[in-house]
Design a protein around this nucleic acid. Structure first.
Lengths: 102, 102
DNA sequence: TGACAATATATCATATCTGACATAATTATC
DNA sequence: GATAATTATGTCAGATATGATATATTGTCA
């Protein structure tokens, strides 16, 4: 992983706790975070495709604008559950969600 | 969704709260649950491929036997995060995880 | 530039998830 | 079919995620 990305992640509040590789992420941790970032990007993309603001989407999902922003930006307090449920709720296909894993 | 599956899910403790379709699941709810079941099956499959008991896997993942069982059976208290993190930790490929979505 | 809309970040009380433990149910081996 | 091994289920205290709210930052357009 390049330094830029790591700084970005650390800035976002990710605490990297890896016994084997201090100051870095091990494979699982990295893949997990990449996954959340990819899902967040997918959510943002779909929202914009529908010409919705974060506030409007928040209403649809019965969530809040701040949480939408956090989802879209890979905030560490956001779960995969919330991301996947949100994507399913706005009609994203399972395929498009699966792509985040590829 | 056929009745058998619904009974299975309700028996497992899923509370179906759907305004549009009482006594049933709406599309998102159904897809979300199917997803967890698919990931749980993947986990069980991979564990057996490695000839591990749930206790052994629990030690590897720093979890507990009961939680492994719950993961493998789609218990409603198990999050996608835990499932995905566990799969990544035992070396499941992103591809094999993505398949659960297809 | 300033004003306004949109997005990002911080914090918190409540809700949900977690490992651990106890114990029940099932399955394998003799 | 008894015993042991494995898996499933119930419960709970502590940990983590959640929507809400406040506020900061960024973008846009006159």
């Amino acid at each position: 992983m390049e330094k830029e990305k790591q700084k970005r992640l650390e800035a976002k509040g990710y605490k990297i706790g890896s016994a084997a590789n201090f100051l870095g992420l091990n494979r699982e941790e990295e893949e997990y975070i990449e996954l959340k970032l990819a899902l967040g990007e997918t959510l943002a993309k779909q929202r914009k495709q529908k010409n919705l603001t974060q506030i409007q989407l928040a209403k649809l999902l019965k969530s809040s604008q701040s949480r939408i922003a956090k989802m879209e930006n890979g905030d560490p307090t956001v779960s995969l559950d919330l991301l996947v449920k949100s994507l399913l709720a706005i009609g994203a296909t399972k395929e498009s969600i699966a792509k985040a894993f590829h």
